[in-house]
């Protein structure tokens, strides 16, 4: 009985497995020089449109906020998050979506997803990062693809920070 239940469970699991993967490649980065040079300098953070039409969102977590604090993403477009931490371990999930990432200083986390419909979503830090952990909430604004193109048009990086 138990073994049958287990096998069924495993089959369901295997079939799901090929559909999507957790964060995969191991990439490292020095948190002490994040802000000076490379991919995570401030001017390069936020959403950028890639040549193939997909969107890459770069985020840095530090005690006790994310940069940028408001992420702008389009619907129906492949979105890749690339994120890291400038100090301690952080993480974030975006409520009502599958997006869930750990930020470990020294490493770059990636997560691929797609947003279905326009929404205003909350993005809390979900890993204990110090006494101010409970204040560390960012926001995600999912806008219609056309609206996103209008706002991003001509700009290298875009966010909804006002």
């Amino acid at each position: 009985m138990g073994i049958v239940a287990l096998l069924v469970g495993m089959m369901a699991y295997m079939s799901l497995h090929w559909a999507s993967m957790p964060p995969s490649r191991i990439e490292t980065i020095d948190p002490a020089t994040l802000h000076i040079a490379g991919e995570f300098v401030e001017a390069n953070l936020g959403s950028g449109v890639e040549p193939n039409g997909s969107v890459t969102v770069r985020v840095v977590g530090n005690r006790y906020s994310f940069t940028p604090q408001c992420l702008l993403v389009p619907t129906d477009t492949p979105v890749t998050f690339r994120a890291t931490s400038a100090d301690v371990v952080h993480g974030f999930n975006i409520a009502k979506t599958n997006v869930n990432v750990m930020l470990v200083p020294g490493y770059i986390a990636t997560f691929k997803t797609k947003f279905k419909e326009p929404a205003d979503l909350e993005m809390p830090c979900h890993e204990f990062c110090g006494v101010g952990h409970a204040t560390m909430w960012a926001h995600v604004k999912v806008v219609d693809k056309a609206e996103f193109e209008k706002q991003a048009g001509g700009k290298r990086r875009v966010s909804c920070v006002k």
Binding site: M1, G2, I3, A5, L6, G9, M10, Y13, H17, M21, P22, P23, S24, R25, I26, E27, T84, G91, N100, V101, M102, L103, V104, G106, Y107, I108, A109, T110, F111
Partner: peptide, 29 residues
């Protein structure tokens, strides 16, 4: 516990997921 972590590759994550399924056997028994 590290499925969302960036410092472990997805192959190892899969291995550990499979072994986690195995550890349900003694409980089912």
């Amino acid at each position: 516990h590290l499925f969302q972590d960036p410092q472990v590759g997805s192959g190892m994550k899969f291995m550990h997921a499979v072994f986690t399924a195995m550890v349900s056997v003694p409980t089912l028994l």
